[in-house]
Amino acid sequence: MIEGTPVHFHRMKDMPSSHLLGTGTPMCAGCGGLETLHNMYDILGEKTVFVNAAGCMTLLSVYPFTPFRGGWLYTSMASAPAGAQGVRDAMDIMIKKKKLPEDENMEVVVVTGDGSAYGMGMSATSGAMDRNLNFIYLCYDNEGYGNTGQQYSAATPHAAITSTSKGSHGYPGFKKDLFSIWAAHHPAYVATIIGAEPLDLAKKIEKLQGMTGPRMLISLAPCPTGWDYDPQLSVEIGHLAVQTGVWPLKEYINGKVTHTKIPKQRKPVEEYLKLQGRFKHLFYPQRDEQGIAEIQARIDAYWDNVTE
């Protein structure tokens, strides 16, 4: 963060009360990703070009309907960061050559799901960070290929039932640590966020606005459709993800990782798991003590190493 930038978002009351992102989108009712996006858009403002990779949010803009007041460009599943590269470079060139007034400049924001960010789009993302591209990247992470019916992806957590891991123990793999992979590129900024913690989110967006270079965000995106829970629980599940320590809120700046919200007394992870149909097999027909304990142990091990 640039010294002297005032922080506007001290309290929840500082959050915007009217919203930029147009209503009427085809996202599911209770979509945790949309919650993140609309809060982010309120702070970034309309001079923003969103460059999108194939995923649920590709359907945000379906001709002739768009919720955006600035720019939107759909690219492909693998190459949204490259699309951002072209837009950013073009605007810089146009401004330098005085073909575009400076006040016409826009912030370029990549929006992809976890399917793209953790997998097919990772090479393009890595390349954009190598090139120190001045852009923001939002991964809305609903832990599976949601737009095709929630098959498991590299972001799927251990034991989750998905439409391609329907066995009695769910997904055997473990969620990939994208935060660390990104941080290993030493970009300007990496942070985890979640729509259920709008103040933490707002502070982070405001902080990255004062920076240049790659500014990378992963938002856990509770997904009623893919995770199988009642949509009204979206925010509750988001809170529990933070309170149980499943989703650590943190940021990376200048080689250092800082946790922005350390739960004082972590709730047992089962409080988070039991609300979701994708983990139902851990509780019904009988409790899988060992399975739950393993998940808890991994969370505990993570936090054991957290000091700040």
């Binding site: 070009v49 460059v51 460009l73 690219t75 492909s76 693998a78 190459s79 949204a80 960061p81 490259a82 699309g83 951002a84 590269q85 072209g86 837009v87 470079d89 073009a90 605007m91 810089d92 060139i93 146009m94 050559k97 073909k99 575009l100 090479s123 393009a124 890595s126 390349g127 190598d130 090139r131």
Partner: peptide, 28 residues
């Protein structure tokens, strides 16, 4: 030559960037 050249990490990305830059007003 008053131009900017960027080496992408693949042709897939290269053609994406070519298209997105042209869509932003420059000659590519």
């Amino acid at each position: 030559m008053d131009a900017r050249m960027v080496t992408l990490e693949s042709e897939h990305s290269m053609i994406t960037a070519a298209g997105s830059a042209a869509s932003s007003g420059v000659r590519v």
